[in-house]
Amino acid sequence: MIFYLLRRIVYTIPIMIGVAFFCFLLVHISPGDPLVSILPPDASIELQKQLMKLYGFDRPWFEQFATWFWRALHGDLGTSIASGRPVAAEVMRAVGNTLMLACMATLIGFLFGGLFGFVAGYFRDSWVDRIASALSVLGVSVPHYWLGMVLVIIFSSWLMWLPATGAGPGGSGEWAWDWAHIQFMLLPAITMSVIPMGIIARTVRALVADILAQEFVVGLRAKGLTDLGIFMHVVKNAAPTALAVMGLQLGYLLGGSILVETVFSWPGTGLLLNSAIFQRDLPLLQGTILVLATFFVVLNLLVDVLQTTLDPRIQRS
């Protein structure tokens, strides 16, 4: 098992280098001047050149990449052009917020998606199944930023139950796990949970239906197990795949919450990316993407390892 783990970790190294290379390249081939946001419109050519030299934008791109990557390995992602603060610190603070939100959303999505999926799979082709399936299709199809706005209108404007934006009573200050803070998280988390909920519900439904059709379920019945006993077997059989899907969804939520975070002004990586793009803040953009990609890779690794421990048929060699 330790050997397997080590090998899997070694495998992620070339993946990470590739990811870093591509995110650097993508940002660089996109048009626009990175210094436009800090230079006054009437700046002289000399000042422009001086700043280009300061940030290293005048050197060939592969040299820039090498320097950037070497520093990144040491935990230095450069300085944000817009704010002048270290990118690493900015990103890590945002990552904390996003991670919190994504975990909450995945948890909600997994609980309800798993529940819908199980019920639908158990009572396949009944009215319960049709309702659960319709809900999950709805969840996958509804644009979530739109859903976010609708939720804000209902729960914040009309009912005034929950705050509309921000991450705490003091704006985006220190986070605490009390109701004053958690209530800010509910609407964005519910909004974000809708897609994973739909996907997990559909996956679990197909899994459960498939497992129930297998011969070993007849075998379990033949040895006298009751419905509850069989249910436990179905859960353990469905768990590896369901967890893998959940892990991937968590990965998507970590990187793909730009719209929802912007709608709710949630100070996470999505909002950070959004502002980095609009301000053409190259170091911040690269740093954020790199950190998100790292999370995705690490998460995939964790899912694989978890699956291996749950399903003995997956080879460890």
Binding site: Q214, E215, F216, V218, G219, L220, R221, A222, K223, G224, H233, K236, N237, P240, L310, D311, P312, R313
Partner: peptide, 21 residues
Amino acid sequence: YRGRVASMIFQEPLLALDPVY
């Protein structure tokens, strides 16, 4: 009654046994 009074052997035990236990 199942399994205690009468029990069954299946044709293909690989399919009739739960793979994850």
